[in-house]
Each structure stands twice: as C-alpha cells, then as structure tokens.
Design a protein around this nucleic acid. Structure first.
Lengths: 227, 227
DNA sequence: GATGTACCGTACCGTACGGTACTGTGTCAA
DNA sequence: TTGACACAGTACCGTACGGTACGGTACATC
C-alpha cells in the first residue's frame, strides 16, 4: 500500500491567468493554505457534486473569492487543481522486486485488486469520477482526461509490467497483454463502479473487497495461469 | 435483437404538475408531437451533455416553453421523461426457448454481450449515462435510478435466468449466480464503459465488438463451463 | 359565425452564480 | 513609523437560465 503512482505528466495548456497559477502546472507546489482550500473543495464535491458555487468554496475555506480567482484563475481551474491534487495523492501497492513466485504474483495481484476497489468505492473517488464524467460530456475542461490518466490508464500502466513479469517467470500465459489486463480489470471491477456512479448505495466493506479481490485473482489465474 | 426488456416498473411519486404529465407515469402514452420533443432533447443531450437550456429545447423542437412546462412540469420532468422514453426503446436479444445446447448457450451469451456492448458504446447511451451519473451526484431527480434499473440491473435480470438454465442443462457450473453474472459482466464490459464516459474516444466498431464478445464468452465458459 | 382548445412565439421576471472591485486588517521589512 | 503586500470580507455587475404570462393563430365543435 505504498509507492508512487506516476503523477499526471500530460502536457498542460489550459488558459491560465496571467501570473503563476498553482493549479496550472502539474508539478507546482501548493502552499499549506491552498491545500486547505482544495480540501474544502473536495468536501463540497463529496457533499453535493460539482454543483457548488465558488462562493460556497470561499465560505467553506474562509477565504475570499478574489483570492480563489487569483490562485486558480477561474472555477474550472479550481476544479482542475483539486482533481490533480487528489490524483497526486493516490498510491498503489508496491510491486515485488525479487523474482516472482506463484505466491508473490498472487499476492501482488490481490493487493492491486483490493487497493483499486478500495479507491473506486470511496466517496471521494465517486464524487471525482462523477464530476469528471459530467465535464467529459460538455467538452470544456480536462477533468475527464485527468481522471482517465490517473484512473484506468494508471492502473493499466502499473499492472501490465507485473503481468509481463509473470509471463517472463513462466507463471502466466497470454498472447496479448492488453487483453489480459482487460480481463483482470473486468473481473475485479465488474459492475461495481458504474453502479456506484449511478447512485446504487451498495458500498462493499473491507471484507467484501478482500473476498472479491481474492476471487477475481483466482479466476484470472484460472484463465491465464500456467501449470 | 428483439424482445422485451421489462420496462421500468419502479414506483413513481416525483412531484408532478397538477394535471396529467406524460413524463410522470411510466406506461403513459406519449403523443407523436411529444416524442418529437423528446427526440430533440436526446439530440441535444448527445450534442452538449445535459447542460442545455429549456429554451434550447423549445427552439430545437419548434415548440413553446410554456408547452414544455405544461407537458413535463419542469426541466427535470423533461429530462426524466426523455430518459424513460429512451429506456423503453432498448431491446435485448431473445432467449433460446428450447432446450439449451452448448452451441445455443454460447450463441445466446455472445449475442447478449455484443448487444450490450453495442448499446453502451453508442453516443446516446454515453450521453444518457453521463447525465444520470451527474444527477446521481446531486441528489435531486431519479435519473440515476432509472438508468440503473434499465441498465446493469436489467442486464442482470435477463442474464441470470439464462445462466440458471445453463446450469440446469448441465452446461454451466457455479454456486452463486450473482457471482457468475459479475464475471460475465466484467469480462464483457471491462473498462470500456468507464473509459468512454470519461471521454476516451476509442469507440469499438462492430467487428471489435464481435471479437470482444466472442472472447469474453470463451473466457466465461472456461471459468464456468462444465465438461 | 361564436366559442373553446391547443399550441407557438416571445416578452418578461426573479434569482443564482461567475467574476471583479473595493475596503479593511494583519504582517513583515526598511 | 511607514509603506508594501497578502488576504478576508463584501458589495457589486452582467448574464444566463428556470419558470410564467400573454398575445396571436389554427382548428375543432356547436
């Protein structure tokens, strides 16, 4: 449950305010105060979707609207900075460094599965994904892209090397790593995420997540395991 | 590619306008003209998400705002009627009626998979799901519930009998039908839907859908097939 | 022909919100 | 002490939009 998720390094160009806007450049350091503001935004998003007003943010964070606009340019910049900041906090399980065994591969996959399920079933992730999905619809802002990069794509980038390592170690057998990833993702996530996004309130608890993860990995190994 | 999807029969109570509002009761007949209006709404949703104004609908459908409010109560009623109407149009493949064989089960599952993928990768479904997801976030309106009922839940209700029939015919082997459904859904849909909702533009064409469906069913049968 | 109904088109109203400007206050540095 | 600065708080502005009201027209019914 530690280690780096590659931070979003996609190019930026979003119309930024004239002076330096922290939300605008990916690696930008956010001051303590600014993080407090973004925290308030996250809380608001969880509480009421992305329909909150800038005034509400100012109220919740005890800061002035003028400061918000100075720091983040406009409402979209504020949202984007929030999503990027949150994304930068997500961590993924560590990959085993030494030679893979059947056990360590199983454990790594199960760890990934559980970690992923824990993230996507969290209120925060649900709120962020909802916002990103809405914005992906109405063209403006890059929220969808950011969440995509730090969500499914990030998982793919992390899992595929593990799968390839498993194949190299003679533990897995597949022709197409993308196909294997697809199966893994599907078996782990299935309809969980879309149901939660649509408002179903069947949040699995930790025990259920463990069970689902273990079963998913078992099935995956039944499909792609060797020997 | 024919046959009934159980229409949404969930109870209704949404604050309806005083007089009969077509959007309000599930089985209500919509006049030709009203369907034209809802068609215009669908087009607008596909084109610009659910951010369109009521005035835009009136313009697109060449009708007056007053009529819209008279028919559908308020903006939400209009949206809800649109989603319900569209949902009522979705059809699912016919189940084989005679005794299942390995071939007919395979064909039925593949047909379902392809049909489902075709629906969820369509622009219309994407737009509707985006709207439903957004609304599920901000509590008001039952869009999320409706899409959930006519989406994942409907698929589940249709697939599970097929799976049970397969088990009864000695073709499938599973302890928990819900678990088997989960695997089927996951193998078929995987990350396709969430990626599209987030704005990834990798729409699979018909050939890809066929290939994915066939592979998914093959994997599913490898996991749950008997003999 | 008179009356009623259903509808379009449009003007209108109230409000909520994004964004800007201004004022007051605490802090730091010379 | 004084000035520059960063910021909170708030008043303000323009606009877009939900919702309503009303005039005008086509059509049906008597």
């Amino acid at each position: 449950m530690t280690l780096t998720l590659a931070p979003d390094t996609a190019p930026r160009q979003t119309a930024a305010p004239a002076d330096a806007a922290p939300g605008a450049s990916a690696g930008e350091a956010l001051s303590e105060r600014q993080q407090e503001v973004l925290d308030a935004v996250l809380k608001l998003m969880v509480a009421e979707g992305d329909g909150f007003s800038v005034a509400a943010v100012a109220r919740a964070a005890s800061c002035s609207k003028e400061t918000l606009y100075k720091w983040f340019g406009d409402r979209d910049g504020l949202l984007t900075a929030t999503v990027r900041w949150q994304a930068s906090k997500v961590r993924m399980p560590k990959l085993p460094q030494d030679r893979l065994t059947r056990q360590s591969l199983d454990a790594a996959l199960t760890g990934f599965a559980a970690s992923w399920l824990t993230v996507i079933t969290g209120d925060l992730s649900i709120a962020l994904n909802r916002a990103a999905v809405s914005h992906a619809g109405s063209g403006k802002s890059r929220l969808g892209e950011i969440v995509l990069t730090n969500g499914p794509f990030a998982m793919k980038r992390r899992i595929e090397p593990l799968l390839e390592a498993g194949r190299a170690a003679g533990l897995l057998d597949f022709a197409d790593v993308a196909d294997a990833f697809r199966s893994f993702f599907g078996l782990v996530v299935a309809d969980t995420q879309i149901r939660l996004l649509l408002g179903d309130d069947s949040h699995p608890d930790e025990a259920e997540i463990s069970a689902i993860s273990a079963q998913a990995v078992t099935k995956f190994l039944r499909l792609y395991g060797r020997g």
